[in-house]
């Protein structure tokens, strides 16, 4: 039951992008086409789950036993940065098709605050191992739903007649706002 609450909470109620404002850069940057949105979601989901698992062990086996939790920010970001490099190298070796699909998005992920944010949040919420994995997967799904539906709307926006001053970023932000408004309908569910 608690897993169910974590999943619903992370996907809909506290959606990483639309309620917590994490990962806005890729949300606005790679949402021009649905296909790139799908690729980015795959890369984020992949790194997010691995990063949450690794940071979970770092927090509980190194930082807490030695009483150096103030090094959390530095150690977590180093983990994320090196993990992205590692994933890139491994993926290139063992699964070239997957690397082709995700390749261009991987370097961008280092500065995707959703990854670091989810890792810090799952430590902050004191989840156990399984809960942390479930939470990070659900967050990635939430990121994907927001990104792909936003990309779908933006593809339609290309065909619209938009006032000059609103073209580009302003109209995208207003659309994101309306999407966030829709997601607010889920508030109070958990």
């Amino acid at each position: 039951m608690s897993y169910f609450l974590i999943i619903i909470g992370a996907i809909f109620v506290n959606n990483v992008v639309l309620a917590q404002f994490l990962g806005i850069c890729p949300f606005l940057g790679v949402s021009k086409r649905i296909s790139t949105g799908v690729g980015m979601t795959g890369a984020v989901a992949f790194v997010m789950v691995i990063a949450t698992i690794v940071t979970f062990f770092i927090q509980n086996l190194i930082l807490i036993p030695f009483g150096i939790t103030f090094l959390q920010t530095i150690s977590f970001i180093l983990v994320v940065a090196s993990l992205v490099q590692l994933v890139e190298i491994v993926l290139k070796k063992i699964s070239p098709p997957l690397y082709q699909a995700l390749g261009v998005f991987l370097p961008l992920i280092t500065t995707n605050c959703a990854i670091l944010g989810v890792a810090i949040m799952s430590v902050g919420n004191e989840y156990n191992m399984v809960e942390a994995v479930v939470f990070s997967m659900a967050s990635a799904v939430g990121f994907g739903i927001a990104l792909i539906s936003f990309a779908g709307i933006r593809e339609q926006l290309d065909l619209m007649d938009i006032p000059e001053g609103m073209q580009g970023a302003p109209v995208a932000l207003v659309v994101a706002g309306i999407l966030a408004l829709a997601f607010m309908g889920f508030a109070g569910m958990v």
């Binding site: 639309l18 001053g165 994101a176 706002g177 309306i178 966030a180 607010m184």
Partner: peptide, 17 residues
Amino acid sequence: LAPGAFIGLGYLIAVLN
């Protein structure tokens, strides 16, 4: 709330443009 952040920034940029 959250949607106001997106909408507020969108219109602020539009006005500055």
